[in-house]
Design a protein around this nucleic acid. Structure first.
Lengths: 340, 340
DNA sequence: TTGAAAGCGTTACCAT
DNA sequence: ATGGTAACGCTTTCAA
């Protein structure tokens, strides 16, 4: 492996000059810089991140803690983070808690704490007090994307408002019988997200003088398959709601599949709205409240980079916008038309 | 930040002993080890990966090059890799080429080559000669998962055989008019995968004395939405095939959606088979040739770890098994029943 | 079993 | 503009 010494020797200057030239620092004559760059290139020299990390205290790497990379939201946020980091030459170190989440302790204890990163971005997790403390003790910038966490900075949509808006859309269309495919608080994941989405649904209903029937609220995981089954259960009960607010687009798609299986026409007999604007939302013609997952990831990364560059941390709740996208799965309730 | 010196001082031994004790090396008295472990824990000491990396030449990190993390296959392989690495305390450094792939050069030149990793696993990419050379010049173990690449070690299913098996299944059911939703060679991605799957289809047909009608082969990207449109085009033409072999499960799902929109009953009027055993395959009752993406990732990681541990590289084509899973989207052609 | 000390490859300060 | 040279925190001989 060629080191900086080799380059120095080959170009007839000191290692200090090579280092300066390579990093584009001032106080290097154009001629020298050119020579150094050329020989470095020719020798195939690459800086050792260990050595420069040791010398500078900077790793040029960002830790990203994710529950898994298989879900749309996580994968998309990760893409956003990574895109922002790539632009400035930062690397992404992935701390995947794994589908089962039993490697959690190991991840926190061994990896993150190995001082390998300059900052940490965590996705939608529910930290234990011990974990929070460990993060804090690293003494570097941290932010959570996707769900509010007490004691840690956080960035994401206003879950409550988003859920209210989705439900309100159904109400505005004339629906009075509105069900909810609720999310289940999953172990290790932020429980506030499903809770707030459900609360927003309830608030929207009560604001409109309606009430939520318990049998029209069916919880499931955030996956298509689980939601499909939940929707099947819910829709088989009589009386049946005329509209469904799903806690996520994947759940909404599950509901659409269930409705088809039951021979229910969407949106004539059942309106469905979700949250996310998932990659498949358009394919299914799904009406949804779009949240920019990619943008959230990018923003999180940019905030961390800013802080690393010395900027004072921006404080307070960072709420990103979410907008209603009307497509083909919501319409006024058929009962109305039939009655008229 | 507490360093090894702090621990040494606090426990009244030398840094050498602390280092040995912490890493579980022999020649440390039980008493000393206990003291060291306790003080390290109490001081919240964590080794600096930069420093130990510099000293040992090992980074304890694996580079994983992925086209993106949004597609099922990539995400799942990544989960498998990461699970294997986590077990042994290795970190995953993600080199995401990005959805557009224009950061490719930057990734290769700057990041990968920063000597940050002990080995590299690449997913299903099509390397340029320059990139291949760069990888080789790193001088560390490398493997490609998912598509054969000349000159690099590779691990994955036998694409040709898998495609033949899928098509043969349709033929065995009695189908004679079989179409193919083919994959499009995407820029930067391994072109051999879609090519071989198509070739396997053609070979299976000709082995059975059938021929592939060009108008029954419709290419699209590997996504649900794109395949849905392709299937729509294909199925609207007359005469229509009685069965469809899709180059991936996502494409097969697109075909199912298209069939439903056209009022075609699956499998009565149209059989559909895919490849992958995607997370949604079961939900859609999709018949498919299952490939263990998670296991492939894990295996790749294990191979790399083996080599890093000094084992000689296993050579030759590494083909992992794939098995037919019959579900509800394939059946004998209706024409037969009607004719009889 | 333990300790002293020489690296590991860079960076950054201080001279020049 | 350039060079010499301490760090940086850890590992690993080699002695004791």
């Amino acid at each position: 492996m060629t080191s900086i010494d080799d380059v120095a020797r080959a170009s007839g200057v000191s290692t200090a000059t090579v280092s300066r030239a390579l990093r584009g620092l001032p106080n290097v004559s154009p001629a020298t810089r050119e020579t150094v760059l050329a020989t470095a290139e020719q020798l195939g020299y690459v800086v050792s991140s260990s050595a420069s990390g040791l010398a500078t205290g900077r790793t040029l790497a960002m830790g990203v803690v994710v529950p898994n990379v298989s879900r749309w939201f996580y994968a998309t946020v990760l893409e956003g983070i990574d895109a922002a980091l790539r632009r400035v030459g930062y690397d992404t170190i992935l701390f995947n808690l794994g589908l089962k989440g039993e490697d959690r302790e190991r991840v926190f204890h061994r990896s993150i704490l190995r001082k390998r990163t300059d900052a940490v971005i965590a996705l939608c997790l529910d930290f234990t007090p011990a974990e929070r403390e460990q993060l804090a003790s690293l003494g570097h910038p941290t932010i959570v994307v996707g769900g509010p966490v007490p004691g840690l900075r956080h960035l994401g949509v206003d879950e409550l408002a988003v859920a209210r808006a989705a439900t309100a859309h159904l109400i505005a269309l004339g629906h009075r019988q509105i069900g909810h495919l609720a999310g289940i608080p999953e172990p290790g994941l932020n429980k506030r997200v499903p809770q707030r989405r459900r609360r927003g649904y309830e608030l929207a209903l009560s604001s409109a003088g309606l009430s939520a029937r318990p049998e029209w609220i069916e919880p499931s995981d955030f996956q298509i398959s689980g939601a499909r089954e939940a929707a099947l259960r819910l829709l088989r009960r009589e009386p049946r709601p005329t509209a469904l607010f799903a806690a996520s687009d994947e759940m909404a798609i599950g509901a659409i599949l269930a409705a088809r299986e039951l021979g229910l026409d969407v949106p004539r007999e059942l309106s469905v709205i979700g949250i996310d604007n998932h990659a498949l939302a358009e394919t299914f013609g799904l009406t949804t409240i779009a949240q920019d997952a990619f943008g959230q990831g990018r923003l999180a990364a940019e905030l961390m980079l800013e802080e690393l560059a010395g900027a004072p941390p921006r404080v307070g709740q960072l709420h990103v916008p979410a907008t209603l996208i009307e497509r083909a799965t919501t319409a006024p309730p058929a009962s109305r038309a039939q009655v008229e």
